[in-house]
Every structure is written in C-alpha cells, then in structure tokens.
Measured scan of single mutants.
Amino acid sequence: MATGGRRGAAAAPLLVAVAALLLGAAGHLYPGEVCPGMDIRNNLTRLHELENCSVIEGHLQILLMFKTRPEDFRDLSFPKLIMITDYLLLFRVYGLESLKDLFPNLTVIRGSRLFFNYALVIFEMVHLKELGLYNLMNITRGSVRIEKNNELCYLATIDWSRILDSVEDNYIVLNKDDNEECGDICPGTAKGKTNCPATVINGQFVERCWTHSHCQKVCPTICKSHGCTAEGLCCHSECLGNCSQPDDPTKCVACRNFYLDGRCVETCPPPYYHFQDWRCVNFSFCQDLHHKCKNSRRQGCHQYVIHNNKCIPECPSGYTMNSSNLLCTPCLGPCPKVCHLLEGEKTIDSVTSAQELRGCTVINGSLIINIRGGNNLAAELEANLGLIEEISGYLKIRRSYALVSLSFFRKLRLIRGETLEIGNYSFYALDNQNLRQLWDWSKHNLTITQGKLFFHYNPKLCLSEIHKMEEVSGTKGRQERNDIALKTNGDQASCENELLKFSYIRTSFDKI
C-alpha cells in the first residue's frame, strides 16, 4: 500500500482533458527560462521544448504516446526543470519506465491550478516501474492521483506527508504495488545497510526511497516546507523545498512566496507586481503582455491589467481597466465587458449561442446573426445582446428569417469595421425574408467608422429604411451602385405612401 494514499474509496472516473512563447529569463536562482504550460502528445517531438525550461508557468501534460519505446527515452533528460506552477499529468506514455532521468531536479509542483483537485496525476502508464522524482520536495496545493499503472512499484516507500501538507485526498490505487509483488529495495538494503531515512506512518517504520538508488530526502521537522541542505541544516524561511546553503534567500532552489532578481522575498516591493503567484514583474512586463494579447485571437491570451499590486489576466467583477495605466478602477454604474472572439468572429444561430455573449459591452471581433427560429426570440436576444455598444469588426445579418427588427441591439452605437466582410463591408444584410426595420432612427444613433453597407434580398425592408441608415451611420456616399439592390429590397412591402385627393359631386333626387 502506498504510504499516505487512500484505498478502496469510491472515486469519480478520471477524465483526461485534452506555445513556446518565453516569458522571460528567471535569473540567477533558476538555471534556465520560464516556459508556458505545455500539452505534449502523440510523439516526442515537442518534448524537446523543455530543454531550457527551469519553470513551467502553467501545467505540463505528457500523454497518448503509443509508439514510443524505452530506448526512445534513454537520452532524454531535462535537468534544468525545477518547478511547475500548476500540475504534472502523465497518461498512456508507452515505453517510459521512470522519471528519474527525465526530470531529475523537479523540486516543486505548486498546484496553482489543479487537474480535478490533483497536482500530480500518473494514470495508465503501462510501462512505468517507478516514479523516480527523487528531488520532489513540495506539492504546495492539491493532491496526488496514481492509478492503474500495472508495473509501478516504489510507492509504499514514499512518505507523501513530507511532500504535501495533507495526504487525506491522495488516491493511489490499482498499481502493481497493490499486489505486494514489488519487493522494493532501498539503497544499501541488499548489503544489509540502512542508507535512507525511515519514518513512521500508520504504525509502520519504513525506509523512504524513490528507487533502488535514490533515497527520499527527509528534512528535520523544524525546517517545515522550506527544505534543508545535504547536511540537514534548514533553508531560509522564504525558500521552498530545498537550498544549497542554509538561511540564505539567494540560495533557495525555489521560493515559498515570490522570486525577485535572484532572491526569494515575502512580497513584491514597489515598483514590482505579483505575477502568477510566484514571481515579481515590473510595469513594462505587464504592459507588454497586455499589448501582445490586445489584437491576438490565441486562446488563453489575456490583456493583463494591474489590481491590488498584482498583474492579473482581467479586472475583477465591479472594476474596469483604465487604459492609460492598466489599473483596475471601480465602475460607475454597470461595468464594461470586452469579449474577445477566439477566431475573430462568432455566429449567433440560437439563443444558446447568444447567451455566451451575455453582459458583453464591447465585441472584439465580428458578429454573424443567422437565426431561423426560436421561442420568445426578441426578448431572449435583447437579454443577451442588448448591452453590446461596440463591435470592432463587422455585423452580418444573414438568412435570419425569424427577425423582424434589429432593435434587440438596443445599445449598439459603434461598428468600427477594423475587419470587413469580403474585404469591403462593415454591415452586411443578406436574404432576411421578414426583416422590416433596422432601428427606430428617431431614437437610435449608430456610427460606422469604416467599410460599406450591403443589402440584398431583404424583400420587406424598404429602401427608405436603408437610406436612413446611410445618413445616420455616416456611410452615405461610400456605397457603390450594386451594394444596395434596388429590386430585391422592399419588393414585397408597401414602401411608397402617396396622399390621394378626392373630389365629389353631391346629387339628390331633384338636383344634379
């Protein structure tokens, strides 16, 4: 039985969820670079991206490699990797027998973001014989899940209580170790020597080791999670996991709180800001991140802002960003909400898709409305799209047979046209069989910064309504002859009103 693990408890099935942008060198404390989270699957090609990484700022997932063999891993080693800020997950990587050479110096898994409450997941690794993470000293947050690894031993010899604050939620089941077939031998045991430290858990006094050649490092209890030197002297209180010299914040392997210019500090002093819960960055760093993602459509890219001495992905609820200094300031009234469309555009074809934009005031991208039916549609669209004030790209209304009016965009005031449909149009209306009105132009103002209007096959939309939009939106004169079809717009509506004058002759039985 794995020490510190839980057996036999019912657990939810383990679901495996399925960018080499360097964020800056980590400095003297770390020998390499800070790398983003990685999802490495199918083959070993991307694994080489770990070569210079000291910190993975995010998670590391290595999974679904069915053609790899043990010899493929023999020359692979990433000794610079010290810390993973989120979680480490391995799933069905064939041929991998140990992690001792792959990650010989991995010391800390912070667990800032977890995989279903777990910071370390080893699942269905069919050839893994031992973990071998002999320098792993601290899992700051989260638990361990090690399950269905039929060859995995050296679990009962690990004292997880020396690595985690609590072992109650560890789930370590259905491994070879369960069948008591392992016969784990710690260093020196074969020669009758006791080389590794022994600890007591559940009444068992057991030597602690990761492999037959690597003991588990056990520091004096007084050192807590700070770690200790090879001689057993406690590291500085700002260290986490390990250090090369005692009581020196510049000799830590990793930091308990924050890293700044080669030393570990309790908090980031001005003019620095907390970033990702582990390091200090200056304003320029946060500003660069903001600008890199301002026009990016890459998933996970955030326009970072500053709030409460932190550089964070977005302002919290009730705050909006001051564009001059990136500071989050309290909103006066309802907060603006910028919604970034991942692929640059979004099609609204149902109430469900409209709900995804609920509360958005600025759309960074283009909207395509293609709704053919739905219950209580006008009210639903207004509830979900009615706060949109600005669209950076274009607005396209296409084959939306259920629409009679666009009044559900009740606050839309600006279409920038930074991206144009077919390279020309910022407003595009095609084949809307029941569209009769755009907006009530006596109450609604709309500016279209650039781009043209396109109207074709809107049989109940009168040309007068379209011409009014040209005047109000500032697009009059931009359109070419064929942009607004004269014969297919309003051709099934009563669009022309003329005053009919009647004269009559009164007659009676005795007068003409």
Rank of each mutant, 00 (worst) to 15 (best):
S296P: 07
H307F: 05
V121H: 04
R256G: 05
N322W: 05
L106H: 02
S213I: 12
I109K: 02
D159H: 05
Y134V: 12
N282M: 15
Q204S: 06
L240F: 06
A198Y: 05
N242L: 09
N117S: 06
Y259M: 08
N150L: 14
G262V: 03
P316H: 13
S54G: 01
E33G: 06
Y273S: 08
P330L: 13
V265L: 09
M137H: 07
D72R: 07
Y171M: 05
D165Q: 08
E57M: 14
E97V: 14
N195P: 07
R263S: 12
E124V: 03
L90I: 10
I306R: 02
S225W: 14
G333K: 05
R279W: 07
S98W: 01
K251V: 09
T189P: 07
P270N: 15
F283P: 07
L155D: 01
V281L: 06
W160G: 01
K224W: 03
G188E: 05
V218P: 02
L136V: 07
A230F: 10
K100M: 12
E314N: 15
E314P: 14
Q245K: 12
L63S: 03
P36Q: 05
R69P: 05
Y273P: 03
L327K: 15
K294T: 04
V206Q: 15
Y304Q: 09
P330N: 07
G183R: 08
C264K: 00
D248A: 06
I139L: 07
R69T: 07
V144E: 00
Q204A: 11
M137W: 06
D72V: 15
Y94D: 05
Y319V: 04
G111P: 00
R141M: 02
S296F: 08
H48E: 11
K129P: 00
K67W: 10
H302C: 06
L89G: 00
S161L: 13
C228R: 01
N309S: 08
L128A: 06
R297K: 11
N149A: 01
N179L: 09
R74H: 15
N179V: 13
Q299I: 09
M65C: 05
S54Q: 06
E97K: 14
S225M: 08
C234E: 02
R279A: 10
V265W: 12
K217G: 07
H307M: 11
Y259I: 13
H28L: 13
V93L: 15
C53T: 01
C53Q: 00
C311I: 03
L131A: 08
L90F: 15
N117P: 01
V206L: 13
T199W: 09
N117L: 04
F275K: 02
L81G: 00
F285A: 15
S324K: 07
V108L: 10
T157Y: 02
N308H: 15
D101T: 08
L96C: 04
D277C: 10
M65E: 07
L240V: 06
N117H: 08
T221P: 03
C209V: 03
I306N: 02
I56Y: 00
C335E: 04
Y273G: 04
E180A: 11
Q61T: 03
S161T: 15
E147H: 04
L128W: 00
G192F: 08
L60C: 07
N52P: 12
S112W: 12
D72W: 10
L114S: 03
K217L: 07
Y259V: 12
N242I: 12
R297C: 07
R113L: 05
P269M: 07
D169Q: 14
T199S: 06
H274N: 08
T189W: 03
P313R: 11
D169K: 14
E51H: 10
T250Q: 10
D277F: 06
C264T: 00
L96V: 06
G262I: 09
G183T: 13
P316N: 05
C53H: 00
V200A: 05
I222G: 11
I201R: 02
H59R: 12
